[in-house]
Each structure stands twice: as C-alpha cells, then as structure tokens.
Simulated assay, not measured.
Amino acid sequence: MADRFDPRTTDRLRAGSFDAQQGVGASAATDAGLRSYMLSIYNYMTSGILLTGVVALLFAQSGMAAQIMFGPGLMKYLIIFSPLAIVFAMSFGMDKFSTAALQAMFWGFALLMGLSMSTVFLVYTGESVALAFFSTAAAFAGLSLFGYTTKKDLTGWGSFLIMGLVGLIVASLLNIFLKSSVMGLVISYAAVLIFAGLTAYDTQRLKSTYAYVAGTDMMGKVVIMGALSLYLNFINMFQALLSIMGSRD
C-alpha cells in the first residue's frame, strides 16, 4: 500500500503508460501503412484489369482483332508472346529497373494483354464473358480476403502450387497437339484450383513482405510486382472459368 504514494512508483507507472501509448501509436501507424500498401497493390491490379478489358473490347469491335488474331501473319504471335516477354523482363530485372520503368512495363503489359484477350469477345457470348468475369471477381475477393486475414501460415502452399502450375503448363502444351476436349476441361478445372490457391498465397505473401520494404526504395517496386502477381492470378482464373462455363457464339 505504501508503494501507492512512493514517487518512484508513480514515475514507473507514468513511464509504463508512455511506453504503452508509444506501442499503440506504432502499431496504428504500421496498420495504416499496411492498408495503404495493400490498397496501392489492389488499385494497380484493378486498373490493369480495367485497361485490359477496355482494350480487348475495343479491339474486338474494331474488326481488326478477327483479321489479325484469326488470320495469317506473324503479328498475332507478337501480340500473344509479348506480354510473356514483359513478365519475364519484370521478374528477372526487378532490381535493375526503376519504379517508373516497372510502372511503364506494367501498363504496356496490360495493354498488350488486352489485344491478346480480344479473342474472348469473338469466341464467347457477351453473357458468358460477363458471368465468368463477375464469378472470378467474387471468388478473387473472397480468396484474397482469406489470405489477408487468416492466421494460418500459407507458406507451405507455395512449392505445391508452383509444381501444380508447371504441370499445368506442360499439360496445356501437350494438349495443343492432342486437341482433347476432355483434357482441356480437366486442365481448366485444375487451373481454377491452382490460381485460387495462388490468390490466397500471394495475398498473404505480399502482406508479410510489407514489414521488410516499408520505408525503403523497394516498396514502390514491390507494389508493382505484387499487382502483377495478383493480375495474373485473376486473368488466368477468369480464362479457366470462361472455358468451363462459357457459351460460344
């Protein structure tokens, strides 16, 4: 009871209260920074998807898409493989490129993807495209929210999902020659599962990365590369769902 009136005890209490307030303030600042960081990633990803969609629709409606993508010539292969080349350049050259250069490459990638994906408006009905898009958006939002909020460590999913992705690519290449509709359907279902898992995994990975890049020059680059990862998950999931539920013109 005597300690209650001991000045040293009062000082200790005040110091403890000050430290606690500092801790709360630091935690609040971290949470605000994390939200801003994740919001920047989602803004870039969403803007990239919007740009891709607008370009795809306009290119399909112009009539040029049918001539180029379904006609003779090398232009269609340039359109198809250019986005892949940009992805590799961004992934392996991330440390060499500036943030502004990565931003320009991201927008160029989204634009070229729009040209490439214009064929979906020529092959599938508008209702099918809309249904697949909104189904993907709903699934992506739920999976990303799960990855952001779950306390479960999803790190172990990484190697399994990457192996699944490699297997998916090999199977897709084989089916170019086999032209099996059954195998194509199996590949589509597998793609939905793999990119659904990658959406949750990448969201948690990006959230964890914030602690290492906050306040550094790398954060801008990580935001762009994170947006690219989530963009690819969304687009691949959309294409897989479209091939499963889409009605052809």
Rank of each mutant, 00 (worst) to 15 (best):
M1D: 14
A2T: 06
A2K: 09
R4K: 14
F5V: 15
T9E: 12
T10F: 10
D11R: 14
R12D: 15
L13Q: 12
A15G: 09
G16C: 14
D19H: 07
D19A: 15
Q21K: 15
Q22N: 15
Q22H: 14
Q22V: 11
G23R: 13
G25H: 13
A26N: 13
A29V: 13
A29Y: 06
T30Y: 10
A32G: 02
S36T: 01
I41W: 09
Y44T: 08
S47E: 09
G48I: 02
G48A: 04
L51T: 15
T52A: 02
G53Q: 08
F59I: 07
A60H: 00
S62E: 01
S62Y: 00
G63P: 02
G71W: 11
L74N: 13
L78D: 03
F81L: 15
S82N: 09
A85C: 07
I86R: 10
F88H: 05
A89V: 10
S91D: 14
S91H: 15
S91R: 12
G93F: 07
M94A: 14
K96Q: 11
F97E: 08
S98F: 14
A110R: 09
A110V: 07
A110W: 10
M113T: 03
S116F: 07
T119Q: 05
L122A: 11
V123D: 02
Y124T: 04
Y124I: 07
Y124R: 03
S128D: 01
L131C: 04
S135R: 04
T136N: 06
A137K: 03
A138N: 12
A139N: 11
L143Y: 06
S144Y: 04
F146N: 07
G147C: 10
T149G: 04
T150Y: 12
K151F: 10
K151I: 06
T155M: 12
T155A: 12
T155F: 13
G156K: 08
I162H: 09
I162D: 05
G164F: 02
L165Y: 03
V166W: 05
V166K: 00
I169Y: 02
V170G: 04
S172N: 06
L174K: 05
N175R: 07
S180I: 09
S181V: 10
G184L: 01
G184P: 00
I187R: 01
Y189C: 03
A191W: 01
L198D: 04
A200G: 07
Y201R: 13
Y201Q: 15
R205Q: 10
L206R: 08
Y210F: 15
Y210H: 08
Y212T: 13
Y212R: 15
Y212A: 15
D217A: 11
D217I: 05
M218S: 13
V222R: 08
A227Q: 11
S229T: 10
L230W: 05
L232W: 03
L232H: 03
F234G: 06
I235M: 05
I235V: 10
F238W: 02
L241S: 04
L241W: 01
S243N: 11
G246W: 00
G246Y: 00
D249I: 08
